[in-house]
């Protein structure tokens, strides 16, 4: 994004908007909209899975549609909860070091949990967990 009316000094001082807030705002809404059907589905899925044995759950996740929707639910939920906790951290933690550590922990926990969940579901769906 160009800023034709800004002087080089104002640019060097970093004054004004960063210029990418709208994209971030829209991305948050896109994730939220996607989560509406995914969460309704995952409640239905949890009701089906709760009375099942481990073998039953493995067969259930072996169906491609179930595995796909489960992975999508994890990925979009974790994306959404990363963005949400990020805002909470930015609101309440003012000390730069504490805030940076919390933001980093939030990112690492989300990426790790998402990676573990997706690998686990793929392992089951591809028949390697029997």
């Amino acid at each position: 994004m160009s800023h034709p009316y800004r002087t080089p000094l104002s640019r060097a001082r970093g004054n004004g908007a960063a210029g990418h807030g709208a994209g971030h705002w829209i991305a948050e809404r896109v994730g939220s909209i996607a989560l509406v059907p995914l969460i309704l589905w995952v409640v239905y899925a949890a009701l089906q899975l709760a009375p099942m044995s481990r073998d039953g759950a493995i067969v259930w996740l072996g169906q491609p549609l179930n595995a796909l929707l489960m992975i999508l639910t994890f990925v979009v939920s974790i994306w959404h909860m990363h963005d949400g906790l990020r805002v909470v951290i930015e609101d309440y933690l003012a000390t730069i070091l504490v805030k940076s550590a919390a933001l980093l922990a939030n990112l690492f926990i989300c990426v790790l949990a998402g990676g573990l969940a997706v690998i686990s579901i793929l392992k089951i769906a591809l028949g390697a967990a029997l």
Binding site: R54, A57, I109, S120, I124, A129
Partner: peptide
């Protein structure tokens, strides 16, 4: 509830991990 659901999602990830890990 958002912060609580953060924890719940980690519990759900643990469900997938233990399901893949073994009986």
């Amino acid at each position: 509830t958002g912060v609580g659901l953060y924890g719940a999602t980690l519990l759900a990830a643990a469900w997938a991990v233990t399901l893949a890990a073994g009986p």
